[in-house]
Design a protein around this nucleic acid. Structure first.
Lengths: 188, 188
DNA sequence: GTCTATAATCTGATAGAC
DNA sequence: GTCTATCAGATTATAGAC
Protein backbone atom coordinates (compact mmCIF):
# COMPACT_ATOMS: atom_id res chain seq x y z
CA UNK A 1 0.00 0.00 0.00
CA UNK A 2 1.40 3.33 -1.02
CA UNK A 3 1.01 6.37 1.13
CA UNK A 4 -0.26 9.47 -0.66
CA UNK A 5 1.92 12.51 -0.19
CA UNK A 6 -0.85 15.06 0.05
CA UNK A 7 -3.23 15.00 3.01
CA UNK A 8 -6.94 14.65 2.35
CA UNK A 9 -8.66 17.76 0.88
CA UNK A 10 -10.37 18.79 4.09
CA UNK A 11 -7.12 18.75 6.02
CA UNK A 12 -5.32 20.56 3.25
CA UNK A 13 -7.92 23.33 3.23
CA UNK A 14 -7.79 23.71 6.99
CA UNK A 15 -4.03 23.70 7.11
CA UNK A 16 -3.65 26.30 4.37
CA UNK A 17 -6.41 28.48 5.81
CA UNK A 18 -4.90 28.24 9.27
CA UNK A 19 -1.54 29.34 8.01
CA UNK A 20 -2.97 32.27 6.06
CA UNK A 21 -5.38 33.36 8.78
CA UNK A 22 -2.56 33.36 11.29
CA UNK A 23 0.04 35.12 9.18
CA UNK A 24 -2.04 37.45 6.97
CA UNK A 25 -5.14 37.79 9.06
CA UNK A 26 -8.68 36.51 8.57
CA UNK A 27 -10.15 39.47 6.71
CA UNK A 28 -7.08 39.86 4.54
CA UNK A 29 -7.27 36.26 3.38
CA UNK A 30 -9.69 35.54 0.55
CA UNK A 31 -11.38 32.30 -0.38
CA UNK A 32 -9.61 32.41 -3.72
CA UNK A 33 -6.19 32.45 -2.15
CA UNK A 34 -7.09 29.53 0.05
CA UNK A 35 -8.31 27.33 -2.79
CA UNK A 36 -5.33 28.27 -4.93
CA UNK A 37 -2.74 27.41 -2.28
CA UNK A 38 -4.59 24.31 -1.13
CA UNK A 39 -4.93 23.27 -4.77
CA UNK A 40 -8.60 22.59 -4.35
CA UNK A 41 -11.79 23.48 -6.21
CA UNK A 42 -14.03 26.11 -4.72
CA UNK A 43 -16.98 23.73 -4.75
CA UNK A 44 -15.04 21.33 -2.55
CA UNK A 45 -14.25 24.03 -0.05
CA UNK A 46 -17.89 24.98 0.37
CA UNK A 47 -18.73 21.27 0.65
CA UNK A 48 -16.51 20.96 3.68
CA UNK A 49 -17.02 24.45 5.10
CA UNK A 50 -20.39 26.06 4.27
CA UNK A 51 -19.01 29.56 4.89
CA UNK A 52 -15.79 31.39 5.58
CA UNK A 53 -16.73 31.85 9.22
CA UNK A 54 -17.17 28.09 9.62
CA UNK A 55 -13.60 27.79 8.44
CA UNK A 56 -12.60 30.36 11.02
CA UNK A 57 -14.21 28.40 13.83
CA UNK A 58 -12.53 25.18 12.67
CA UNK A 59 -9.22 27.03 12.59
CA UNK A 60 -9.58 28.27 16.16
CA UNK A 61 -10.64 24.85 17.42
CA UNK A 62 -7.61 23.34 15.75
CA UNK A 63 -5.30 25.90 17.37
CA UNK A 64 -6.89 25.20 20.73
CA UNK A 65 -6.23 21.47 20.47
CA UNK A 66 -2.75 21.99 19.11
CA UNK A 67 -1.86 24.28 21.97
CA UNK A 68 -2.85 21.82 24.66
CA UNK A 69 -1.15 18.88 22.96
CA UNK A 70 2.06 20.74 22.26
CA UNK A 71 2.29 22.17 25.75
CA UNK A 72 1.81 18.76 27.32
CA UNK A 73 4.54 17.37 25.12
CA UNK A 74 6.75 20.32 26.05
CA UNK A 75 6.30 19.62 29.77
CA UNK A 76 6.73 15.85 29.51
CA UNK A 77 8.70 14.60 32.49
CA UNK A 78 8.43 17.79 34.51
CA UNK A 79 6.27 17.81 37.61
CA UNK A 80 7.93 20.48 39.72
CA UNK A 81 5.38 23.33 39.80
CA UNK A 82 8.00 26.08 39.73
CA UNK A 83 9.60 24.49 36.71
CA UNK A 84 6.22 24.18 35.04
CA UNK A 85 5.56 27.88 35.47
CA UNK A 86 8.86 28.68 33.78
CA UNK A 87 8.08 26.09 31.12
CA UNK A 88 4.92 28.00 30.33
CA UNK A 89 6.96 31.07 29.38
CA UNK A 90 9.60 29.01 27.63
CA UNK A 91 6.91 27.32 25.58
CA UNK A 92 5.54 30.61 24.42
CA UNK A 93 8.98 32.01 23.73
CA UNK A 94 9.74 29.01 21.55
CA UNK A 95 6.42 29.38 19.75
CA UNK A 96 7.06 33.03 18.96
CA UNK A 97 10.50 32.22 17.62
CA UNK A 98 9.12 29.43 15.47
CA UNK A 99 6.43 31.66 14.00
CA UNK A 100 8.58 34.74 13.38
CA UNK A 101 6.78 36.73 16.11
CA UNK A 102 3.31 36.35 14.69
CA UNK A 103 1.75 36.64 18.13
CA UNK A 104 -1.12 34.71 19.69
CA UNK A 105 -3.71 33.45 17.17
CA UNK A 106 -6.55 34.11 19.59
CA UNK A 107 -5.55 37.65 20.48
CA UNK A 108 -5.02 38.45 16.81
CA UNK A 109 -8.45 37.22 15.81
CA UNK A 110 -10.09 39.30 18.52
CA UNK A 111 -8.39 42.38 17.13
CA UNK A 112 -9.50 41.61 13.62
CA UNK A 113 -13.18 41.12 14.16
CA UNK A 114 -15.85 43.57 15.09
CA UNK A 115 -16.82 42.83 18.65
CA UNK A 116 -19.98 40.88 18.18
CA UNK A 117 -21.10 38.48 20.85
CA UNK A 118 -20.62 35.44 18.69
CA UNK A 119 -18.98 32.06 18.75
CA UNK A 120 -15.46 33.40 18.20
CA UNK A 121 -15.62 35.51 21.34
CA UNK A 122 -16.68 32.40 23.21
CA UNK A 123 -13.83 30.24 21.90
CA UNK A 124 -11.18 32.85 22.63
CA UNK A 125 -12.54 33.45 26.11
CA UNK A 126 -12.61 29.72 26.84
CA UNK A 127 -9.06 29.30 25.59
CA UNK A 128 -7.69 32.06 27.76
CA UNK A 129 -9.63 30.90 30.81
CA UNK A 130 -8.14 27.45 30.37
CA UNK A 131 -4.60 28.85 30.23
CA UNK A 132 -5.23 30.95 33.30
CA UNK A 133 -6.61 27.98 35.21
CA UNK A 134 -3.65 25.86 34.19
CA UNK A 135 -1.20 28.42 35.51
CA UNK A 136 -3.13 28.74 38.75
CA UNK A 137 -2.98 25.00 39.23
CA UNK A 138 0.82 25.29 39.14
CA UNK A 139 0.94 28.22 41.54
CA UNK A 140 -1.27 26.40 44.04
CA UNK A 141 1.30 23.64 44.30
CA UNK A 142 4.26 25.80 45.24
CA UNK A 143 5.05 26.68 48.89
CA UNK A 144 3.88 30.00 50.25
CA UNK A 145 5.78 32.93 48.88
CA UNK A 146 6.23 35.97 51.10
CA UNK A 147 3.10 38.03 51.31
CA UNK A 148 1.90 37.18 47.83
CA UNK A 149 -1.57 35.89 47.22
CA UNK A 150 -1.20 33.01 44.79
CA UNK A 151 -4.41 33.64 42.94
CA UNK A 152 -3.52 37.26 42.30
CA UNK A 153 0.06 36.42 41.51
CA UNK A 154 -0.86 33.76 38.97
CA UNK A 155 -3.40 36.02 37.28
CA UNK A 156 -0.97 38.87 37.00
CA UNK A 157 1.69 36.55 35.69
CA UNK A 158 -0.70 35.25 33.06
CA UNK A 159 -1.52 38.79 32.02
CA UNK A 160 2.15 39.74 32.03
CA UNK A 161 2.91 36.97 29.56
CA UNK A 162 -0.01 38.05 27.38
CA UNK A 163 1.44 41.54 27.27
CA UNK A 164 4.88 40.15 26.56
CA UNK A 165 3.55 38.22 23.57
CA UNK A 166 1.98 41.36 22.17
CA UNK A 167 5.10 43.41 22.81
CA UNK A 168 7.14 40.70 21.17
CA UNK A 169 5.16 41.05 17.94
CA UNK A 170 5.64 44.82 17.95
CA UNK A 171 9.36 44.85 18.70
CA UNK A 172 10.11 41.60 16.84
CA UNK A 173 12.30 40.15 19.56
CA UNK A 174 11.75 38.05 22.66
CA UNK A 175 13.09 40.60 25.13
CA UNK A 176 9.77 41.24 26.87
CA UNK A 177 9.20 37.51 27.28
CA UNK A 178 12.69 36.94 28.66
CA UNK A 179 12.18 39.84 31.04
CA UNK A 180 8.87 38.39 32.25
CA UNK A 181 10.66 35.09 32.79
CA UNK A 182 13.29 36.71 35.00
CA UNK A 183 10.61 38.62 36.86
CA UNK A 184 8.61 35.59 37.87
CA UNK A 185 11.73 33.54 38.61
CA UNK A 186 12.78 36.19 41.10
CA UNK A 187 9.43 36.07 42.87
CA UNK A 188 8.78 32.36 43.11
CA UNK B 1 -20.57 85.54 11.97
CA UNK B 2 -22.24 82.22 12.25
CA UNK B 3 -20.29 79.13 13.20
CA UNK B 4 -20.83 76.14 10.95
CA UNK B 5 -21.81 73.01 12.85
CA UNK B 6 -19.86 70.55 10.74
CA UNK B 7 -16.06 70.51 10.86
CA UNK B 8 -14.13 70.96 7.65
CA UNK B 9 -14.23 68.00 5.22
CA UNK B 10 -10.73 66.80 5.96
CA UNK B 11 -11.38 66.66 9.66
CA UNK B 12 -14.72 64.98 9.14
CA UNK B 13 -13.13 62.28 6.99
CA UNK B 14 -10.37 61.67 9.50
CA UNK B 15 -12.72 61.58 12.44
CA UNK B 16 -15.14 59.16 10.80
CA UNK B 17 -12.33 56.97 9.50
CA UNK B 18 -10.66 56.94 12.92
CA UNK B 19 -13.86 55.84 14.59
CA UNK B 20 -14.49 53.08 12.06
CA UNK B 21 -10.88 51.88 11.93
CA UNK B 22 -10.83 51.63 15.70
CA UNK B 23 -14.19 49.94 16.18
CA UNK B 24 -14.57 47.81 13.05
CA UNK B 25 -10.97 47.43 12.02
CA UNK B 26 -9.01 48.81 9.11
CA UNK B 27 -9.54 46.03 6.61
CA UNK B 28 -13.20 45.70 7.50
CA UNK B 29 -13.83 49.36 6.80
CA UNK B 30 -14.39 50.33 3.17
CA UNK B 31 -13.92 53.68 1.51
CA UNK B 32 -17.62 53.76 0.66
CA UNK B 33 -18.64 53.53 4.28
CA UNK B 34 -16.27 56.32 5.21
CA UNK B 35 -17.53 58.73 2.56
CA UNK B 36 -21.14 57.86 3.37
CA UNK B 37 -20.82 58.48 7.10
CA UNK B 38 -18.64 61.55 6.63
CA UNK B 39 -21.13 62.83 4.03
CA UNK B 40 -18.36 63.55 1.58
CA UNK B 41 -17.73 62.82 -2.09
CA UNK B 42 -15.23 60.14 -2.96
CA UNK B 43 -13.22 62.55 -5.08
CA UNK B 44 -12.74 64.78 -2.06
CA UNK B 45 -11.45 61.94 0.03
CA UNK B 46 -8.81 61.02 -2.52
CA UNK B 47 -7.88 64.69 -2.78
CA UNK B 48 -7.02 64.80 0.91
CA UNK B 49 -5.75 61.23 1.25
CA UNK B 50 -4.27 59.76 -1.94
CA UNK B 51 -4.83 56.21 -0.70
CA UNK B 52 -6.47 54.27 2.08
CA UNK B 53 -3.11 53.60 3.71
CA UNK B 54 -2.39 57.34 3.83
CA UNK B 55 -5.60 57.65 5.77
CA UNK B 56 -4.39 54.90 8.08
CA UNK B 57 -1.14 56.72 8.80
CA UNK B 58 -3.01 59.96 9.49
CA UNK B 59 -5.30 58.04 11.85
CA UNK B 60 -2.40 56.60 13.83
CA UNK B 61 -0.65 59.95 14.04
CA UNK B 62 -3.86 61.50 15.34
CA UNK B 63 -4.21 58.79 17.98
CA UNK B 64 -0.60 59.31 19.01
CA UNK B 65 -1.12 63.05 19.54
CA UNK B 66 -4.45 62.52 21.28
CA UNK B 67 -2.91 60.04 23.68
CA UNK B 68 -0.17 62.37 24.82
CA UNK B 69 -2.48 65.37 25.15
CA UNK B 70 -5.16 63.47 27.03
CA UNK B 71 -2.70 61.82 29.38
CA UNK B 72 -1.11 65.15 30.24
CA UNK B 73 -4.53 66.59 30.95
CA UNK B 74 -5.34 63.54 33.06
CA UNK B 75 -2.20 64.05 35.16
CA UNK B 76 -2.58 67.82 35.55
CA UNK B 77 -1.59 68.84 39.03
CA UNK B 78 0.03 65.55 39.98
CA UNK B 79 3.78 65.41 40.37
CA UNK B 80 4.24 62.58 42.84
CA UNK B 81 5.89 59.80 40.81
CA UNK B 82 4.06 56.98 42.60
CA UNK B 83 0.76 58.70 41.91
CA UNK B 84 1.71 59.19 38.29
CA UNK B 85 2.37 55.49 37.88
CA UNK B 86 -1.08 54.70 39.23
CA UNK B 87 -2.52 57.46 37.04
CA UNK B 88 -1.10 55.68 34.04
CA UNK B 89 -3.23 52.62 34.80
CA UNK B 90 -6.23 54.70 35.76
CA UNK B 91 -5.99 56.57 32.49
CA UNK B 92 -6.05 53.39 30.51
CA UNK B 93 -8.87 51.94 32.60
CA UNK B 94 -10.93 55.03 31.91
CA UNK B 95 -10.13 54.87 28.21
CA UNK B 96 -11.25 51.26 27.97
CA UNK B 97 -14.49 52.05 29.76
CA UNK B 98 -15.15 55.00 27.47
CA UNK B 99 -14.58 52.91 24.36
CA UNK B 100 -16.52 49.82 25.41
CA UNK B 101 -13.33 47.74 25.72
CA UNK B 102 -12.13 48.28 22.19
CA UNK B 103 -8.52 47.84 23.21
CA UNK B 104 -5.42 49.74 22.16
CA UNK B 105 -5.62 51.21 18.64
CA UNK B 106 -1.95 50.48 18.02
CA UNK B 107 -2.03 46.86 19.15
CA UNK B 108 -5.19 46.29 17.13
CA UNK B 109 -3.68 47.65 13.95
CA UNK B 110 -0.61 45.48 14.34
CA UNK B 111 -2.85 42.42 14.55
CA UNK B 112 -4.78 43.44 11.48
CA UNK B 113 -1.95 44.02 9.07
CA UNK B 114 0.46 41.59 7.55
CA UNK B 115 3.80 42.16 9.18
CA UNK B 116 5.54 44.15 6.55
CA UNK B 117 8.36 46.42 7.53
CA UNK B 118 6.46 49.56 6.69
CA UNK B 119 5.56 52.89 8.19
CA UNK B 120 2.82 51.51 10.42
CA UNK B 121 5.24 49.22 12.22
CA UNK B 122 7.44 52.24 12.80
CA UNK B 123 4.65 54.40 14.22
CA UNK B 124 3.41 51.68 16.56
CA UNK B 125 6.91 50.92 17.76
CA UNK B 126 7.62 54.59 18.40
CA UNK B 127 4.36 55.02 20.29
CA UNK B 128 5.05 52.09 22.59
CA UNK B 129 8.64 53.13 23.17
CA UNK B 130 7.44 56.55 24.19
CA UNK B 131 5.00 55.08 26.70
CA UNK B 132 7.68 52.82 28.12
CA UNK B 133 10.11 55.72 28.48
CA UNK B 134 7.45 57.82 30.17
CA UNK B 135 6.80 55.12 32.74
CA UNK B 136 10.50 54.67 33.37
CA UNK B 137 10.87 58.38 34.01
CA UNK B 138 8.32 58.00 36.81
CA UNK B 139 9.99 54.94 38.29
CA UNK B 140 13.35 56.65 38.35
CA UNK B 141 11.95 59.35 40.62
CA UNK B 142 10.69 57.04 43.35
CA UNK B 143 12.90 55.96 46.28
CA UNK B 144 14.63 52.59 46.10
CA UNK B 145 12.24 49.70 46.48
CA UNK B 146 13.57 46.54 48.07
CA UNK B 147 15.72 44.54 45.73
CA UNK B 148 13.88 45.62 42.60
CA UNK B 149 15.71 47.02 39.66
CA UNK B 150 13.73 50.03 38.54
CA UNK B 151 14.39 49.57 34.86
CA UNK B 152 13.23 45.98 34.93
CA UNK B 153 10.30 46.77 37.16
CA UNK B 154 9.06 49.58 34.95
CA UNK B 155 9.38 47.49 31.81
CA UNK B 156 7.50 44.58 33.32
CA UNK B 157 4.84 46.91 34.60
CA UNK B 158 4.44 48.42 31.16
CA UNK B 159 4.10 44.96 29.63
CA UNK B 160 1.69 43.92 32.38
CA UNK B 161 -0.61 46.81 31.51
CA UNK B 162 -0.39 45.94 27.81
CA UNK B 163 -1.51 42.42 28.66
CA UNK B 164 -4.26 43.75 30.88
CA UNK B 165 -5.60 45.88 28.03
CA UNK B 166 -5.72 42.86 25.75
CA UNK B 167 -7.32 40.70 28.43
CA UNK B 168 -9.83 43.47 29.06
CA UNK B 169 -11.00 43.35 25.44
CA UNK B 170 -11.40 39.57 25.61
CA UNK B 171 -13.28 39.41 28.90
CA UNK B 172 -15.07 42.73 28.44
CA UNK B 173 -14.40 43.98 31.95
CA UNK B 174 -11.63 45.91 33.66
CA UNK B 175 -10.70 43.18 36.13
CA UNK B 176 -7.23 42.53 34.72
CA UNK B 177 -6.45 46.25 34.77
CA UNK B 178 -7.68 46.65 38.34
CA UNK B 179 -5.61 43.65 39.33
CA UNK B 180 -2.50 45.10 37.69
CA UNK B 181 -3.17 48.31 39.58
CA UNK B 182 -3.25 46.51 42.93
CA UNK B 183 -0.14 44.58 42.00
CA UNK B 184 2.01 47.60 41.32
CA UNK B 185 0.57 49.49 44.27
CA UNK B 186 1.72 46.70 46.52
CA UNK B 187 5.25 46.81 45.16
CA UNK B 188 5.96 50.53 45.04
C1' DG C 1 -12.57 71.54 -3.78
C1' DT C 2 -16.55 69.06 -4.44
C1' DC C 3 -19.45 66.48 -7.35
C1' DT C 4 -21.17 62.22 -10.37
C1' DA C 5 -20.01 58.39 -12.95
C1' DT C 6 -17.37 54.60 -13.68
C1' DA C 7 -13.29 51.65 -14.28
C1' DA C 8 -11.00 47.38 -12.95
C1' DT C 9 -10.68 44.10 -9.71
C1' DC C 10 -11.74 41.24 -5.90
C1' DT C 11 -15.16 39.51 -2.47
C1' DG C 12 -17.89 35.40 -0.59
C1' DA C 13 -21.04 32.30 -2.38
C1' DT C 14 -24.08 29.33 -5.81
C1' DA C 15 -25.48 26.22 -9.81
C1' DG C 16 -24.99 22.52 -12.56
C1' DA C 17 -22.17 19.32 -15.48
C1' DC C 18 -19.05 15.40 -14.96
C1' DG D 1 -15.93 15.10 -4.70
C1' DT D 2 -14.24 17.96 -8.21
C1' DC D 3 -14.75 20.93 -11.93
C1' DT D 4 -16.04 25.47 -14.69
C1' DA D 5 -18.75 29.37 -14.99
C1' DT D 6 -20.91 32.87 -12.86
C1' DC D 7 -23.60 35.83 -9.48
C1' DA D 8 -24.33 40.17 -6.93
C1' DG D 9 -22.06 43.23 -4.42
C1' DA D 10 -17.98 45.63 -2.50
C1' DT D 11 -13.23 46.96 -3.15
C1' DT D 12 -9.73 50.91 -4.20
C1' DA D 13 -8.99 54.25 -7.35
C1' DT D 14 -9.54 57.51 -11.56
C1' DA D 15 -11.66 60.95 -14.95
C1' DG D 16 -13.91 64.92 -16.02
C1' DA D 17 -17.78 68.28 -15.28
C1' DC D 18 -19.12 72.12 -12.23
Amino acid sequence: MEQKMKPKPRERILQVAADLFYRQGYTQTGINQIIAEADIAIGSLYKHFPSKSDLLVAYLEMKENEWLEDFEKFCKGTDNPKELIIKYVDFRIEHQQNTAFCGCPFIKIMSQLDTTDDKVQQIVEAHKSKQKALLYSFFKQIPDIGSWDKKQLSENFFVLVEGAIVTTTILRNTQALESARKFIKKII
